[in-house]
Simulated assay, not measured.
Amino acid sequence: MTAMRFIYDCDPGADDALAMLLALGRRDALDMIAVTCVAGNVGLEPVVNNARRILELTGRQDIPVYSGAARPIMASRGRLSIMHGADGLAGSTLPAPTMPLSAGHAANEISRIARAEGKLHICATGPLTNLGLALLLDPELPDFISALTIMGGAAFCPGNTTPLAEFNFAVDPHAAAIVFDSGIPITMLGLDVTRQATVTEDMIRQVQAIDTPVAREAAHLLINYGSKDPCLHDPAAIAWMLKPEIFKTVPAHVSIYTDSGPAAGQVIAAVSERHLAGRAPNCSVATDVDADAFRRLFVSALS
């Protein structure tokens, strides 16, 4: 089996870090060729530091890390999450990174790498600012992206940042709107499914029993982040790329509410023929996951 080559666009963040560990543990199936960073869970500087800390932990300094957007497209500053601690990794003891950032802005690098690859998969688990900017800068970019796997949104359930919106889309609703209007095939793993992908005490014990530096860091994140939010939002996106058969999806036409107020970033998912009103679906929305299979997949990758 040829490993899927992909860019990971993220805002580490504890669950982004766990998603990286899941992907990097499955080099047989996934080939992470670059990490592009965006401000989100924490500011841009700790985000790019955390991405490099995880790569150094796993011995993957060969993967370039590019710094990206420090703020949303249409706002002077974005929201920050309270779930990940001041450093973004729940008080991790990992050392400061020594590997350098790679030159170039994440939005430009997404375009360059996609064109060089010909067809590229992108997994995005933070605000979609880098992707939105890349699409604005390079209108032909959709021709070079085979698919997007996105953690974000809440299609058929309440949000977690406002009653209507999930964090990533609430941070930059305009970027999310640009991405969903791009015509690129999208799978959206929002709160509908990530709230099912939860940490359990048994899962933590299994990870602790592996007793490697990587597993010890994963256990730290599962315990300290999971005590605030037990949902493994971002690892669910990687799990979809590894094992889509453990998920259920529904085709939908997704649009994003961009006006200000508590609905900013709300997903409007049209599923029925009446609501589609002649529009073709632009997204597969994940609605269910076999949570036990998801946890087994995660623990196995750390092993």
Results as ranks from 00 to 15, higher is better:
residue 2 T to S: 14
residue 2 T to F: 12
residue 3 A to C: 05
residue 4 M to T: 15
residue 5 R to Y: 05
residue 10 C to E: 09
residue 10 C to Q: 14
residue 10 C to M: 15
residue 13 G to S: 14
residue 14 A to M: 05
residue 15 D to L: 04
residue 15 D to E: 09
residue 16 D to A: 15
residue 17 A to Y: 03
residue 17 A to C: 12
residue 18 L to Y: 07
residue 18 L to R: 11
residue 20 M to R: 05
residue 21 L to Q: 14
residue 24 L to Q: 09
residue 25 G to E: 07
residue 26 R to E: 13
residue 28 D to P: 07
residue 28 D to M: 03
residue 30 L to R: 06
residue 32 M to S: 06
residue 32 M to I: 14
residue 36 T to A: 01
residue 36 T to M: 05
residue 37 C to R: 00
residue 39 A to F: 08
residue 39 A to S: 14
residue 41 N to V: 13
residue 41 N to F: 13
residue 42 V to F: 01
residue 42 V to T: 13
residue 47 V to Q: 03
residue 48 V to L: 05
residue 50 N to M: 09
residue 55 L to C: 11
residue 56 E to K: 08
residue 58 T to F: 04
residue 61 Q to W: 00
residue 62 D to S: 11
residue 62 D to V: 03
residue 67 S to N: 00
residue 67 S to K: 13
residue 69 A to W: 04
residue 69 A to E: 15
residue 70 A to G: 11
residue 75 A to I: 00
residue 75 A to E: 15
residue 75 A to W: 10
residue 75 A to N: 10
residue 76 S to G: 14
residue 78 G to V: 04
residue 78 G to S: 12
residue 79 R to P: 00
residue 80 L to C: 05
residue 81 S to T: 10
residue 83 M to Q: 13
residue 89 L to H: 02
residue 91 G to F: 04
residue 92 S to R: 04
residue 92 S to K: 02
residue 93 T to L: 11
residue 93 T to G: 02
residue 100 P to R: 05
residue 104 G to D: 01
residue 107 A to I: 00
residue 108 N to R: 09
residue 112 R to L: 10
residue 114 A to I: 04
residue 115 R to T: 06
residue 116 A to L: 10
residue 117 E to N: 02
residue 120 L to W: 07
residue 121 H to R: 14
residue 122 I to N: 07
residue 123 C to D: 00
residue 124 A to L: 10
residue 127 P to A: 13
residue 127 P to Y: 02
residue 131 L to V: 05
residue 135 L to W: 12
residue 142 P to G: 03
residue 142 P to R: 07
residue 144 F to I: 02
residue 145 I to L: 04
residue 145 I to P: 03
residue 146 S to C: 01
residue 147 A to H: 12
residue 148 L to S: 07
residue 150 I to T: 08
residue 152 G to T: 08
residue 156 F to K: 09
residue 156 F to T: 13
residue 159 G to Y: 11
residue 164 L to W: 15
residue 165 A to R: 07
residue 168 N to C: 15
residue 172 D to M: 12
residue 174 H to E: 15
residue 181 D to F: 01
residue 183 G to H: 01
residue 183 G to M: 04
residue 188 M to Y: 02
residue 191 L to H: 10
residue 192 D to W: 12
residue 193 V to I: 12
residue 195 R to F: 04
residue 195 R to L: 07
residue 205 R to A: 15
residue 207 V to S: 03
residue 208 Q to C: 08
residue 210 I to M: 02
residue 212 T to Y: 00
residue 215 A to K: 01
residue 216 R to Y: 06
residue 217 E to M: 08
residue 224 N to Q: 08
residue 227 S to M: 11
residue 235 P to W: 06
residue 236 A to I: 07
residue 241 M to L: 13
residue 241 M to P: 00
residue 244 P to Q: 08
residue 245 E to P: 03
residue 249 T to Q: 11
residue 249 T to R: 08
residue 253 H to W: 09
residue 255 S to D: 14
residue 255 S to F: 01
residue 261 G to T: 05
residue 265 G to N: 12
residue 267 V to A: 09
residue 269 A to P: 03
residue 272 S to T: 14
residue 272 S to N: 08
residue 273 E to L: 12
residue 274 R to K: 12
residue 274 R to T: 13
residue 276 L to N: 10
residue 276 L to R: 10
residue 279 R to P: 06
residue 279 R to I: 06
residue 281 P to M: 06
residue 282 N to K: 08
residue 282 N to C: 05
residue 283 C to V: 06
residue 285 V to Q: 02
residue 288 D to H: 14
residue 292 D to F: 05
residue 294 F to S: 01
residue 298 F to R: 03
residue 298 F to Q: 05
residue 303 S to D: 14
